[in-house]
Amino acid sequence: MFGIPVMKLAVIGGLGVAAFAFFAHRNAEASQSNPQCAFTVNADVLNVRAGPSTGERIVGRLVQSQPVTAKPLVQNGFRQIAENRWASVDYLVAASGNTC
């Protein structure tokens, strides 16, 4: 069929299955090593800052009831939500199932 020998098709298919299994396992390990840090904003408007301090510049804003995925790192009462993005823990309510 299509001029490709069956043995070559079997080898190619087997390699594809092995690659899929490898990457699926790697992704599962990565998700287990990163706890789920899910929060909801509990402020009308929450300033997102460049660093963990009210003296840092504002780089964004979150609004009431907005869901936020964050990182486990907390410093000076601020939780890191992304690279150079921090929000006050006083206005982040842990979502159901939060393991962070």
Rank of each mutant, 00 (worst) to 15 (best):
F2M: 10
V89A: 00
I4F: 07
G97S: 08
L62P: 00
A94V: 08
S53C: 06
L46Q: 01
P52K: 05
F20V: 05
P35F: 10
T99S: 12
P67Q: 14
P72F: 14
P72S: 15
A38L: 13
A30I: 09
S53H: 08
P72Y: 12
A21K: 08
A38S: 10
G16S: 07
F23H: 08
A82D: 13
R49P: 00
A82R: 01
V93N: 03
E56M: 13
S53I: 06
A24V: 09
I12C: 05
R61C: 11
R85E: 15
H25V: 11
S31I: 10
V6D: 05
F20I: 05
L73V: 15
V93M: 13
R26T: 10
I81C: 05
S53A: 12
N98W: 14
I58M: 12
N98C: 14
G51L: 04
K71D: 13
S33N: 05
G55I: 07
V6Q: 06
M1A: 06
S31L: 09
I12R: 11
Q75T: 15
V68T: 09
Q66Y: 14
A87Y: 00
N42P: 00
P72Q: 13
A21M: 13
A43N: 01
R49K: 12
Q32P: 02
D44L: 09
A94K: 12
P72K: 15
P52F: 04
S65R: 15
A28G: 07
I12T: 10
D44H: 12
A50L: 13
F78Q: 01
A50T: 03
G3H: 11
I12L: 14
L46S: 00
A30C: 03
A95Q: 14
F2T: 05
L9H: 12
F20G: 03
L62A: 01
P72H: 13
Q80D: 02
R26A: 11
P52R: 03
F39E: 00
S33F: 03
P67N: 13
R85V: 02
N84C: 13
C100Q: 09
G51N: 04
G97P: 01
A38T: 03
A21I: 09
A28T: 09
G3K: 05
A10L: 15
V89K: 09
V63L: 14
R57L: 12
G77D: 05
A10W: 12
Q66I: 07
G60P: 01
M1S: 06
F20Q: 09
R79N: 08
N34S: 09
G13F: 03
S33I: 06
G60I: 10
C37I: 12
A38G: 12
N76F: 11
R85F: 04
A38W: 05
Q32K: 15
G14W: 01
A70E: 10
G14D: 06
N27P: 00
A10S: 10
V93Q: 08
G16R: 06
G51V: 02
F2P: 01
G13T: 04
F39N: 02
N84H: 10
N47I: 11
R61D: 07
K8W: 11
V63E: 01
R85D: 07
